[in-house]
């Protein structure tokens, strides 16, 4: 380095990069802290029928920054034309499935044992009840799965009024925030 001006320019460029890196680092930490404190509402991305185990496997995405726990499953079976099975309701199956933040996890729902395998046109309306750490309220996600439907319909309760309890209905409101 012969020229002091060149030294100055090099140091200014390095200082710019250092300031940029430091600033974006602190922005990143504060943004990720903010995101980590927001609970998201789980989204059912995909549902598949597992013929062997007579169960439906749901891929559930948790878009928020907080872990959520599914504490209850319930489902309504609506028979299609091809099946001889009658419609039935199984409710309040206690489970404990934690959905890690920002990830897609698999949730398996076993259908009633002894019943027939699903046929084309059969509809299973599943209700997942979940909780998150910020409050003591219970929230629900309702997903309707139709056997053999070409497009996997991903629906939440809000998009099908009247068929199920409203999404995020507050069933208990004891404590509020901790």
């Amino acid at each position: 380095m012969r020229n002091p001006a060149l030294v100055f320019v090099v140091c200014v460029v390095m200082a710019l990069f250092l300031g940029w890196a430091t600033g974006s680092f602190f922005t990143e930490t504060s943004v990720s802290k903010a995101i980590a404190s927001i609970p998201g509402s789980p989204i059912v991305l995909e549902a598949k029928y597992d013929q062997e185990n007579h169960a439906i496997v749901y891929s559930v995405f948790n878009p928020g920054g907080m872990p959520e726990t599914i504490i209850q499953q319930a489902f309504v079976f609506k028979p299609g034309r091809e099946t001889k099975e009658k419609g039935y309701v199984v409710s309040n199956i206690p489970v404990h499935i934690t959905l890690p933040p920002g990830e897609t996890s698999e949730v398996i729902m076993k259908l009633k044992t002894g019943t027939e395998k699903l046929h084309l046109g059969d509809v299973v309306l599943a209700t997942f009840t979940y909780i998150h750490p910020l409050s003591t309220d219970l929230y629900t996600v309702v997903h309707s799965f139709e056997m053999g439907a070409t497009e996997k319909k991903e629906k939440k309760a809000s998009s099908q009024p009247g068929s199920s309890p409203a999404q995020k209905s507050e069933k208990s409101n004891k404590g509020g925030h901790k």
Binding site: M1, R2, N3, P4, V7, F8, V10, C11, M14, A15, L18, A21, T22, F25, T29
Partner: peptide
């Protein structure tokens, strides 16, 4: 995060040392 914060804090005097060293050795 802690390690990165420490590193960025340490980088500021290090950059000063680096620049002043170049300047001083030139003069």
């Amino acid at each position: 995060w802690v390690a990165k914060g420490l590193m960025f804090g340490a980088a500021i005097p290090t950059l000063l040392v680096f620049g002043l060293d170049l300047l001083a050795s030139h003069y």
